[in-house]
């Protein structure tokens, strides 16, 4: 309760003196994840000595849509909701982009990209409006809408197809500066930073944390709860559209059937230290978590583990990490 009030009145979440304990906790989690990622990378090098820049590049390209989905999911969860339609949104924006770009010139792709980003923002806002207006729990509304968006994606394209402008594909293909910095990673960091950094500094960003932390307290401190929720869903939709576009970039076509992105995004944010109850966590953790999960998948492949066990391992990791997190929290509370 006091933490929530502090967040509302303080200047920025995670930067005020009153929430030092939370800053330490959140950053400890993120540092831990970064260390885990590093260890995993070394393990990968040990398993497969030839693992190098080229593999890193394809890892980044493969993880890009998941990372966007995780970022979107993190934002909506921080503000106290959850978006189970994110996988369908990715599919819908992906096929829209592919259908509009098919056969078009390179230049005509620019308005298409802008349109698709706007479409994501709009669909996300629809999600948020329906959540707020129907007063039905977020999880149910977005579950129902996941059918709607997936159906719409099938209406746009019946089967995988469409096209993508060459320059878009080229956007994530290479490396920048050193061969160790994949363009896909740069694209991810730049687009997330462009949207999130100003947002987090703004009144709206604060309101998101406040609403997620304690809806009633936020309301009583004068935060406009409903518009904040709608805005959070809209931003999530925007990131889902980026995810859909990055699918277009990596595959060159549109696929109307939603991939496992909803599940992966929820797994990544939980691993990334975002509390499902809302109000806690950042975006760096989920992004790191996406790469941790992707590297583990890659390692298991190198080790010639039956690919089906990969699913098992993923499930176990998800559960174990949350257990460890819960234990750490419990201990701190009793200490």
């Amino acid at each position: 309760m006091t933490a929530a009030a502090g967040t509302v009145q303080g200047s920025a979440p995670g930067r005020t003196g009153g929430t030092v304990a939370r800053v330490v906790r959140r950053n400890a989690w993120t540092f831990g994840l970064a260390a885990l990622l590093l260890v995993l990378f070394l393990v990968t090098r040990a398993i497969k000595p030839t693992y190098g820049a080229a593999e890193l590049r394809s890892l980044a390209i493969g993880a890009l849509p998941i990372a966007f989905a995780a970022v979107g999911q993190a934002i909506v969860v921080i503000s106290g909701g959850i978006d189970l339609s994110i996988g369908s949104l990715l599919a819908l924006t992906n096929v829209t982009a592919a259908a509009l770009m098919a056969g078009g010139s390179e230049e005509s792709a620019v308005p298409v990209v802008l349109f698709v980003l706007f479409l994501g923002l709009f669909l996300g806002a629809v999600n948020g409006l329906l959540v707020v207006a129907s007063r039905v729990p977020d999880i149910i509304v977005t579950l129902a809408l996941s059918f709607v968006w997936a159906g719409a994606a099938l209406l746009v394209l019946k089967s995988p197809g469409g096209g993508t402008a060459q320059w878009l594909k080229g956007l994530i293909d290479g490396t920048i500066g050193s061969e160790w910095i994949p363009e896909a990673l740069v694209l991810l960091v730049v687009s997330v930073a462009l949207v999130w950094l100003p947002l987090r500094r703004s009144r709206l960003g604060l309101s998101m944390y406040a609403v997620g932390s304690d809806r009633l307290a936020a309301f009583r401190s004068g935060v406009a709860v409903a518009p904040t929720k709608v805005a959070a869903y809209a931003v999530t939709g925007l990131f889902a559209a980026m995810g859909g576009l990055s699918l277009s970039m990596s595959t060159g076509i549109g696929t109307p059937v939603p991939g496992p992105y909803t599940l992966l995004s929820v797994a990544a944010i939980v691993l990334g230290g975002v509390s499902l109850v809302g109000g806690r966590g950042g975006l760096l953790g989920p992004i790191l978590a996406v790469f941790v999960l992707a590297l583990i998948r890659a390692d298991l492949t190198f080790l010639n583990v039956d690919p089906n066990f990969t699913t098992v391992v993923q499930g176990v990791i998800m559960v174990v990490v949350v257990m460890v997190g819960a234990f750490a929290t419990l201990r701190r509370r009793t200490a």
Binding site: G315, V319, A326
Partner: peptide
């Protein structure tokens, strides 16, 4: 016992079961 959020616990369990069954 371990106070894992039910959403995560059962989602994780569904992955584990699905993987084991595929094997």
């Amino acid at each position: 016992v371990f106070r894992v959020h039910p959403l995560i616990m059962t989602l994780g369990m569904s992955l584990i079961v699905l993987g084991l069954m595929t094997v």
